[in-house]
């Protein structure tokens, strides 16, 4: 009964190379995913990974070279107009006249759609009521971003595409925007969130795909992706003195040789980091207790989507540098 709201299969898009004789650049090599109604679905990856190209194909702004796309049952490539009334898009850059006021912008964008959201309600939801008569050029970065989201929602869309919506915002504004996205989802809108922020995706997304160099390298809920990391549970131990630490290091190295649940033992500053399966903490504590070596402090190392990225790509996550590498 619940067919996917958005379905992308084997999407491919290549741009002609810049300059004479330049090789064509493949922005999207092979991307597939499905978005269910009512979820916040993340497209996560470093800059230049192909995220924006993917959503621009979804919104009917670009022609894909291969693959199929269905949005609400329509093909946005063949029939972009069928999609536009039901998909709200917030693009990366601000895109309004400097001298148009917040209220005017909402009115004019609202007039394009068959059904429109109540302006007052929307202004209230986005905390813009006080700025209704202010000109766009005079808004702060956060206010512009919120107006941009309001414009994506003014046509009562079934799907909202939000592209890098917290870039350039201060931490407080980011958190406020995250709350807002959840409220949008709770109002029944399916949200497609494009981001290069790992923490944002982890905090907000019900499910997500990780894209790298134009390919999907991981897919699932943030919790399941992190849960699925193998040998990536980490425990950090601190000891009262060097003697205790070297004794513990000996014990744990020996342990790692006979216990498959303990994978690595490495010194980390004046601490020891032990990695392994989900049983690693249990094994470490038991071994130390048996030898009566008592650590001062034991901490489990928090794992994030960043570790997932490192595992699937084999390299560290650098959100900003990837573009130069790819170009």
């Amino acid at each position: 009964m619940t067919s996917p709201v958005v379905e992308v299969r084997n999407l491919r898009k290549t741009y002609p190379g810049a300059g004479r004789g330049a090789a064509p650049k493949t922005a999207v090599a092979d991307v597939s995913f499905q978005v269910a109604r009512g979820e916040i679905f993340g497209i996560l990856g470093p800059n230049g990974a192909g995220k924006t190209t993917t959503v621009e194909c979804l919104a009917g702004l670009r022609h894909a070279d291969g693959g199929t796309i269905r949005v609400l049952g329509h093909d946005p490539q063949a029939d972009p107009t069928a999609v536009r009334e039901h998909v709200g898009v917030q693009l990366q850059e601000a895109a309004l006249h400097d001298k148009i006021t917040v209220g005017e912008a909402l009115d004019v964008f609202g007039s394009f759609y068959p059904q429109r959201a109540d302006s007052a309600e929307l202004l209230d939801l986005l905390d813009l009521t006080a700025h209704r008569d202010q000109q766009f050029g005079k808004l702060s970065g956060g206010q512009k971003q919120r107006l941009s989201i309001a414009l994506a929602l003014v046509g009562r869309p079934q799907v909202a595409i939000l592209d890098e919506l917290t870039t350039g915002l201060d931490p407080a504004a980011r958190r406020a925007t995250w709350d807002l996205v959840e409220r949008v989802r709770d109002s029944g809108v399916t949200v497609l969130l494009v981001t290069h922020f790992m923490d944002e995706a982890e905090r907000l997304c019900d499910r997500l795909v990780v894209i790298d160099a134009g390919r999907v390298v991981a897919e699932g809920t943030p919790a399941a992706l992190i849960e699925g990391l193998e040998g990536h549970r980490g425990v950090r131990l601190r000891f009262a003195d060097d003697a205790a630490r070297s004794r513990a290091a000996q014990l744990l190295t020996a342990l790692s040789e006979r216990d498959p649940d303990v994978v690595g033992v490495v010194p980390a500053g004046d601490e020891i980091e032990v990695t392994g399966t989900r049983k690693v903490l249990f094994a470490v504590v038991q071994a130390l207790a048996a030898a009566d070596v008592v650590p001062d402090d034991v901490r489990t190392v928090e794992r994030t989507l960043e570790d997932v990225f490192v595992q699937v790509t084999g390299r560290a996550y650098r959100a900003e540098e990837n573009e130069e590498v790819a170009a």
Binding site: A59, G60, L61, T81, R84, E85, V87, V89, L91, E93, A94, A95, L96, H97, F109, F112, Y113, G155
Partner: peptide, 13 residues
């Protein structure tokens, strides 16, 4: 330059 044409391309207008 300001992306206004592109922004409109995503709407029914």
């Amino acid at each position: 330059e300001k992306g206004i044409l592109k922004r409109l391309s995503t709407t029914p207008m």
